[in-house]
Design a protein around this nucleic acid. Structure first.
Length: 273
DNA sequence: GGCATCCTGACC
DNA sequence: GGTCAGGATGCC
């Protein structure tokens, strides 16, 4: 599942490899993944060059050389791949942007939840971006702001952390890992965290995401980078999908429960409810 | 918050 | 054939 570290890894590789390429044509066998429609999408991108790329939450934002804004979201199983025309087929490819110099950007997505979208105007982008919460690794992400978010929130801490309108970019893997790191139970009501716990969770979120980026992402499922290579972070996971295995801190067996409809892994002794 | 929805593959 | 996997949205 691509979360902030995975999307950030792809973004960095795109910066040094895709920028400057021209889109010559578009192929798809699943037009629903092109928004607002295949026709509008093609009209907006064909003949244009990639000028820049950025990331907000789990969203990739491209600017083309005429100012067109192109967004991509990988959702659960999306892959963005940089390939040559004659490279062998990638399974589940549903969109291909055919580029100059014999290259292709392939969008492969087993479950077809991901999408590419062109925006009509700048206001639309601003509105979309303004709905995201605090972006980790920016000046806005401080312990004080984090504390403000948790105050008066009776909700369990984990779903709150995964709410993109609260903190942008944290998904299921890094939420479980951050909570283990901070020794906080995923069902803990957000407003019951002590100042010390708030500070630890704040630091653990940054640490978990940073560590994921350093390892070029987590490939427990289908994630691969821009070149089709898996990330290395799986070997550094402490609890995610480790149910039945000993906690690296206290040896208690990791348990799996369901929180907010998501599989949730935690140590029942270390992590305080 | 819960739950359904968008989808398909893996697994029992 | 049923369940699970989980990012985001939309309806309650």
């Amino acid at each position: 599942m691509p979360e902030l570290p995975e999307v950030e890894t792809i973004k960095r590789d795109i910066k040094t490899n895709l920028i400057g390429h021209k889109i010559e044509s578009v192929w798809t066998d699943w037009p629903k993944q092109l928004k607002p429609s295949q026709e509008e999408f093609e009209k907006a991108v064909i003949g244009k060059k990639f000028k820049s790329v950025s990331r907000r939450a789990k969203l990739l934002i491209f600017r083309l050389d005429d100012g067109t804004r192109l967004l991509m979201h990988l959702k659960l199983t999306g892959r963005i791949l940089y390939r040559s025309q004659n490279d062998s087929e990638d399974k589940f490819t549903h969109i291909i942007l055919k580029l100059d110099r014999g290259k292709e950007l392939r969008f492969a997505d087993m479950r077809k939840f991901g999408w590419m979208k062109v925006l009509r105007d700048e206001g639309e982008l601003d509105k979309l971006l303004s709905e995201f919460g605090i972006e980790p690794f920016t000046q806005d992400f401080t312990v004080e702001n984090f504390k403000k978010i948790l105050t008066n929130k009776k909700a369990p801490i984990k779903p709150l952390m995964m709410d993109q309108a609260v903190i942008a970019g944290v998904g299921n893997i890094y939420a479980d890992e951050s909570l283990w790191c901070a020794k906080i139970h995923p069902l803990r009501a957000a407003n019951t965290l002590s100042d010390q716990e708030t500070k630890e969770l704040f630091e653990c979120i940054q640490e978990a995401l940073k560590s994921g980026i350093k390892d070029r992402g987590t490939s427990v499922d289908t994630y691969v980078d821009f070149f089709g290579l898996p990330g290395q972070h799986e070997q550094n996971l402490k609890v995610f999908r480790k149910d039945g295995e000993p906690c690296p801190r206290c040896n208690t067996l990791i348990r799996k429960i369901r929180v907010g409809g998501r599989g949730t892994h935690f140590c029942p002794i270390c992590q305080k409810l």
